[in-house]
């Protein structure tokens, strides 16, 4: 027996050209239009915010890897993705220290204690955003007007509220459809431009970075909830448009819900996972303390993600057994 073809190396044995760095690079490319639009609306400060976030995450990941006796991999760009995503859901006028703390939380508390990239239970970006929202709600939910260039250094006083805040109060914000789609209104710096978000989404979908099942079920749930239970005195279409475009709903659906590490691995749980996140997002927006809810919904459903996989396997196993038992035996 020829045993020379048996591989003695550790897995993975099957390798393709689509490695983790390439997938992460695709995510970074899909984020770039959001930074570009944010730069047009708020100036150079957003680029500095993104750079600080990415650098903080990258350096802390290296330090934590060294301290925890893990392999220090300087080519691991997963922390950079986290560091770029966190500032996008925050206002452009946010203090740099808040971004650093949110990034530090996401890496040191959420990602590294569980084994680093690929082993985390919770979405690091969602956790960082949720941490910032809990610790500095005033800074996180007050914004500056778009098309007003912000200084790179110095303290900026933000005093405007996003349309999501007015929706929470029960008021109907007066926004043009074009403004809604281009993101030219008060809000988080990188989550309001729908065109840029859709461009990133299509790119990720074409490159097969994200799974369409999770995203589809998420948007179905969100749209259904906004249409069936509108909280403003308006028609369903207006309610859906305003609710979808006013906060981080689309951004969360594309970049947080579909994250492959924390999402379920099987197809049917993916539908359930996305659907439940959609429902929880709307519930958080309607009844939660903050105007945004997608980050909290993602974190809650991250806990149930392995359970969804487990129970789906059991359901599939028993359904197969039932099918086999019902199958008539062929007579000889």
């Amino acid at each position: 027996m020829n045993t020379s073809r048996i591989q003695k190396k550790a897995p993975p044995h099957i390798r393709t050209s689509r490695t983790a760095p390439i997938i992460l690079l695709d995510v970074i490319i899909s984020i770039l239009p959001l930074y570009f639009m944010a730069y047009i609306y708020y100036g150079l400060r957003v680029i500095v915010l993104g750079a600080i976030g990415a650098l903080t995450c990258f350096l802390l990941n290296l330090i934590a890897s060294a301290l925890s006796s893990q392999k220090v991999n300087i080519y691991n760009i997963a922390p950079i993705v986290t560091g770029l995503l966190i500032p996008l859901a925050l206002p452009a006028a946010i203090d740099y220290s808040i971004v650093i703390c949110a990034c530090a939380f996401s890496i040191l508390v959420v990602e590294m204690p569980f084994g680093g990239c690929g082993f985390n239970f919770f979405n690091p970006a969602a956790a960082g955003i949720a941490f910032a929202a809990f610790c500095w709600p005033t800074s996180v939910f007050t914004y500056t007007e778009p098309l007003v260039k912000l200084p790179v250094f110095g303290k900026i006083v933000a005093s405007s509220y996003s349309p999501a805040y007015y929706l929470k109060l029960g008021a109907v914000p007066k926004l043009d459809l074009v403004d809604l789609l281009t993101g030219e209104f008060v809000g988080p710096m990188g989550t309001s431009c729908v065109f840029a978000l859709i461009a990133g989404f299509i790119f990720l979908l074409v490159r097969k970075v994200i799974n369409w099942r999770t995203v589809l079920s998420y948007f179905v749930a969100v749209i259904a909830m906004f249409a069936l239970f509108p909280r403003i005195h308006s028609d369903s279409i207006s309610s859906v448009l305003l609710e979808l475009c006013s906060g981080s709903v689309i951004f969360g659906g594309i970049f947080m819900v579909s994250e492959p590490v924390t999402a379920p691995k099987r197809n049917i749980p993916k539908y359930i996972y996305g659907f439940l996140i959609g429902i929880f997002t709307v519930l958080f927006r309607y009844y939660g303390g903050f105007e945004q809810g997608v980050a909290f919904a993602v974190l809650i459903l991250n806990i149930f993600s392995p359970l969804l996989d487990l129970y789906s396997e059991k359901v599939i196993y028993y359904s197969r057994r039932v099918r086999i038992a019902r199958k008539p035996k062929s007579s000889e």
């Binding site: 220290s97 703390c101 941490f131 809990f134 610790c135 500095w136 709600p137």
Partner: peptide, 11 residues
């Protein structure tokens, strides 16, 4: 001056 109010929360 830099305070983190979330630290007082159970999580």
């Amino acid at each position: 001056e830099f305070k983190m109010s979330g630290v007082a929360m159970p999580f």
